[in-house]
């Protein structure tokens, strides 16, 4: 059982060393697969029909459901966030279930989760400034201006808790799966671990993806509409 992130090769640029790790390689594989799917969809749907049928109807219903889900949290004004969150949703979902294809999930590496969570933090403040800049800066000085450092620390802790939730779930699933694989004899390798994979990769992975997107959207919605509540 080996849980360390292996270093595949390193590139030297001047006196700066860059390490290409296993999770980074898997990240590139997953991004490439998603880009290939996007190109395939674009080629398949060369001309959009007014009345959608078949494949186009399926895709349009997926996009419509997702847009409605995003709109229910952030309102109509910030509906452009649906495209970003659809990308994040697809990426995290495919990453979490990539354990089924004998890959180490990239989301079991904290550096990848924290980068997505930091983008969420930037989006929170961008949307809050876009909708109501004055009120947003004033909310950092609540209840009195002496609380500014504490409020700033609270802002920093937000992406950390958001990324630890995803990382902890996926990495503990990885640990338990590899523990069970190292425990069972070889003739049980092909049937019973499917239950473990179904729970830890499919169920927990899909649920954590949903929770990540929902909590990001709730935070953005709360901050964008703090003019009357907070």
């Amino acid at each position: 059982m080996d849980l360390t992130i292996r270093n595949l090769w390193s590139i030297e640029i001047g006196n700066f060393q860059m390490y290409i790790t296993e999770s980074l390689r898997n990240l590139w594989i997953i991004s490439g697969a998603l880009i290939l799917i996007a190109i395939f969809v674009r080629i398949k749907l060369k001309r959009f029909k007014q009345i959608p049928t078949g494949f186009q109807a399926l895709l349009e219903s997926i996009i419509t459901i997702f847009e409605k889900y995003v709109r229910s949290f952030v309102g109509d004004r910030l509906a452009f966030l649906a495209y970003w969150f659809f990308t994040v949703f697809a990426f995290i979902l495919i990453s979490n279930i990539s354990g089924l294809f004998f890959m180490r999930p990239p989301t079991a590496d904290w550096s990848i989760n924290i980068s997505i969570a930091v983008v969420t933090l930037v989006l929170i403040h961008f949307c809050a400034i876009k909708t109501n800049a004055r009120e947003h800066f004033r909310s950092l000085l609540r209840p009195v201006f002496l609380f500014l450092p504490i409020n700033l620390i609270g802002e920093v802790s937000r992406p950390i808790s958001l990324s630890f939730r995803l990382y902890g779930n996926i990495f503990s699933g990885l640990i338990l799966t590899s523990l069970i694989y190292s425990m069972i004899p070889w003739f049980l390798m092909f049937g019973p671990p499917l239950i473990i994979h179904a729970y830890f990769d499919l169920f927990a992975g899909a649920l954590q993806t949903f929770i990540f997107c929902t909590i990001s959207l709730v935070l953005i919605g709360v901050f964008a509409s703090n003019d009357e509540t907070a």
Partner: peptide, 17 residues
């Protein structure tokens, strides 16, 4: 409920990490 479960899980995940 799912959102609340996710938020309540944070403390547990800290312990796990």
């Amino acid at each position: 409920m799912i959102l609340g479960l996710g938020l309540a899980e944070t403390g547990g995940i800290y312990g796990l990490v």
